[in-house]
């Protein structure tokens, strides 16, 4: 189940939690748990949407007044390796990880 989720995310593109839940046959909160689980295992990384730090360079800061939970997840290097998804173009690191 976790592997399937990781695979689905590894395919790229945009997807929302409801769709994932439907595809995997679980509920949305469980998809959320599974994403966190994958993050804990180091395969995924949440990016942006962390509205706890008010507007700290967050793209969703203007939307933060509402309860809009726009959390995005991406594969980590480990996750990419696991899914055997090799980026065709290796991004140069700009030395400023935010």
């Amino acid at each position: 189940m976790l592997t399937r989720l990781l695979q689905r995310i590894g395919e790229g593109g945009s997807v929302h939690l409801g769709e994932l839940a439907l595809e995997l046959g679980v509920t949305v909160p469980v998809v959320r748990d599974m994403l966190k689980d994958l993050a804990l295992r180091g395969y995924l990384r949440p990016t942006g949407g962390d509205c706890n730090t008010k507007c700290g360079g967050c793209a969703f800061s203007t939307a933060c007044h509402s309860a809009m939970a726009a959390v995005t997840w991406t594969l980590t290097d480990k996750g990419r390796k696991r899914m055997d998804v090799r980026p065709k173009f290796v991004a140069k690191s700009d030395g400023r990880s935010t």
Binding site: I9, S14, V15, S66, A69, A70, T72, T74, V85, F89
Partner: peptide, 23 residues
């Protein structure tokens, strides 16, 4: 310039709700 990198992006959509006038 920027050859494709696979980007994946999972978004959590909030439930529809009656807007809060204060917000």
């Amino acid at each position: 310039f920027f050859r494709g990198e696979r980007q994946s992006f999972v978004m959590e959509l909030p439930r529809y709700s009656v807007p809060s006038l204060t917000a």
